[in-house]
Write a protein that binds this DNA or RNA. Structure first.
Length: 578
DNA sequence: TCCGAGAGCGCC
DNA sequence: AAACGGCGCTCACGGA
């Protein structure tokens, strides 16, 4: 079949096709691979692989999974030949379900290295790097789905395996992936990041393993917890209705109702309306404000965390969170479906849904103050480094320098990492601007190297088209109107690589099998109860850095108990959550 | 009915 | 001169 962009798409349906494929394969080296499946949810019941496409920059071969030609494509994936995928994590998990474990180049990873702030979808990259608008295929396929009354999710499961648009555009994707790889590989090398390709491949393979492993969920507890939040939400909702707000989730209604009560606002949203967020409402002494916050919080816990977790359980009853190993421009990872990096930490109830496997205990190991230590080390800030070397309480030191309490000192320390100023501190700590100003200038006075380093980074950025390079060699672009973020970006990116390097060491040390989840500066793991303390110690030893630019990066390691929640403050109302 | 920007909020 | 960084998720709302 003749495809757009001069590509040829060859379905493999006959012996003659198979022979032609074999001949073609003998004449090429690296190939690109893509898969089509019934849906994105690899672990859901009824999920299956439908097509496997293999190709180069000109030709794509499309195999129907389950046909007599399965051995052909399987042998290709098993041949040890370099394989190129776009968004390899997905295809990797799909293929692992068939016990195939290919090694991969991922054009999405390469694209992130080359342009960390850009968009990395196949279609966007095709426009950007190949000048090819490949969206027509998707649109045609979607139109076909719609004409059959299928939603997008349904269509991929139901579309005929031989529907010309399906076959053609499935094939085209591998051709484009191959061409993208050819464009991206030299760009990665030119950007001085060739050494990161293998590093990121190893990290992404490990993270795919975590997704595959998943976590055990206590379903009956989760149902009950959902009901608890629901009841809590109902009660607050009723309060709102009594006070004349039918929909407390409508910012407009809340704003108008509070205005009518004579409340005065100060904070505004980006669009210029008065803000009714938590910061604003918490300053308002009115029962409506409290009730609205109650609805929002209980609603979020129920919908985003409890129901969100239950809704995406795999056929095996486990939670299989998606991990994007290279999500933020800084390289920070992101976890979704469910969003395990964002579970409430102020109380244990939501985390208690996630339990250790039978006979096991859950524990966690996290870097202590990693971003502040990285900041001190990279900025080579003498006072701060010495404080960490002496084991002094840095938050107290900042507080003492400003003559305020520790809490404010701690906020100032963190806010500095985030690039915040006096305004931000005043808002967050609910103190007047004068006090906030005093604390922030005390910070600058006490740790002069931080400001000096920040200014240096900004100078460097301006001298190099707003691009910085981290210690691990990662290219890091700034937004030209927000160069003050330089300090935060470099610190965040470096801290990400600290954890990523630790993950590889954990694997080498044979500990990776214990890992369940990563949360930026933390590993959550499980171990047989009898070994848990030893495993905690091992994680601490392997993750720690003894000398990171002149500073140790120590790790706190703790056995929690039978659930993830066991490490957190237990609910004050256990009878409801029990 | 679908889509997307915006607001809000959970975590580190 | 000052500058709150990163993500994922849900809901409401207005426009196509």
């Amino acid at each position: 079949m003749q495809a757009p962009f001069g590509a040829t798409v060859c379905p493999v349906r006959t012996e003659a096709d198979a022979e032609a494929y074999t001949a073609w394969l003998a004449s090429v080296g690296t190939v690109a691979v893509d898969t089509e499946t019934t849906g994105l949810d690899v672990f859901s019941p009824g999920w299956s692989l439908r097509l496997v496409q293999i190709g180069d920059g000109d030709t794509a071969w499309v195999f129907e999974v389950g046909s007599e030609f399965d051995p052909l494509w399987k042998a290709t994936l098993d041949s040890g030949r370099a394989l190129i995928f776009h968004h390899a994590t997905y295809d990797l998990l799909a293929l692992r379900r068939l016990d195939l474990y290919p090694s991969t180049f991922d054009t999405k990873t390469l694209a992130h290295l080359v342009d960390p702030a850009g968009q990395h979808s196949l279609k966007k990259l095709c426009v950007e790097l190949l000048g090819a608008d490949a969206s027509e295929g998707d649109e045609k396929l979607m139109a076909h789905f719609r004409s059959n009354g299928w939603k997008k999710g349904e269509g991929f499961a139901k579309v005929d395996l031989r529907h010309p648009d399906y076959v053609l555009y499935s094939g085209l994707d591998v051709v484009l992936t191959f061409r993208l790889f050819q464009k991206l590989r030299p760009l990665v090398v030119d950007s001085g990041q060739a050494h990161l390709v293998d590093f990121e491949r190893r990290v992404s393979h490990l993270m795919a393993t975590l997704t595959e492993r998943g976590m055990s969920v206590d379903k009956s507890y989760a149902y009950q917890l959902g009901c608890t939040y629901d009841a809590r939400r109902e009660a607050a909702f009723d309060q709102c209705v009594i006070m004349g707000v039918d929909n407390p989730m409508s910012t407009k209604q809340v704003r108008e109702a509070l205005k009518a009560e004579g409340v005065t606002f100060t904070k505004k949203t980006a669009k210029g309306d008065y803000s009714v967020d938590e910061e604003a409402l918490s300053l308002i002494d009115h029962p409506l404000a409290a009730a609205v916050l109650g609805v929002r919080r209980a609603g979020k816990f129920r919908k985003s965390y409890v129901e969100g977790t239950l809704a995406v359980l795999g056929a095996d009853g486990r939670s299989h969170p998606w991990i994007n190993p290279l999500a933020a421009r800084t390289g920070r990872m992101a976890v979704s479906r469910p969003p395990l990096q964002q579970l409430p930490s102020s109380d244990a109830d939501v985390r208690t849904m996630f339990v250790a496997d039978p006979g096991h205990l859950i524990g966690a190991s996290d870097y202590s103050n990693v971003e502040l230590r990285v900041l001190a080390a990279l900025a080579d800030e003498r006072v701060m480094k010495q404080a960490f070397l002496d084991g002094s309480d840095l938050h107290q030191m900042t507080a003492d320098a400003a003559g305020v309490d520790r809490k404010l000192g701690k906020m100032a320390n963190f806010l500095t990492v985030y690039g915040g100023g006096p305004q931000a501190l005043a808002a967050q700590a609910k103190v007047d601007l004068r006090t906030a100003d005093k604390v922030m200038s005390a910070f600058k006075r006490t740790y002069p190297g931080v400001d000096r380093w920040g200014k240096k980074l900004q100078m460097q950025a301006q001298a190099s088209r707003y691009q910085l390079r981290t210690a691990s060699g990662r290219r890091l672009p700034l937004d030209r109107d927000r160069i003050y973020a330089a300090t935060n970006y470099v610190v965040q990116s470096t801290a990400r690589d600290v954890l990523a390097q630790a993950l590889l060491r954990l694997d080498e040390a044979g500990l990776f099998g214990h890992l369940l989840m990563v949360v930026h500066d933390e590993c959550v793991w499980q171990a047989p109860a009898a070994d848990a303390e030893d495993v905690a110690q091992s994680f601490k030893e392997i993750m720690s850095f003894s000398d990171f630019h002149g500073l140790p990066l120590p790790v706190d390691s703790e056995v929690y108990g039978a659930s993830w929640g066991a490490g957190y403050q237990q609910s004050t109302r256990p009878e409801e959550a029990a």
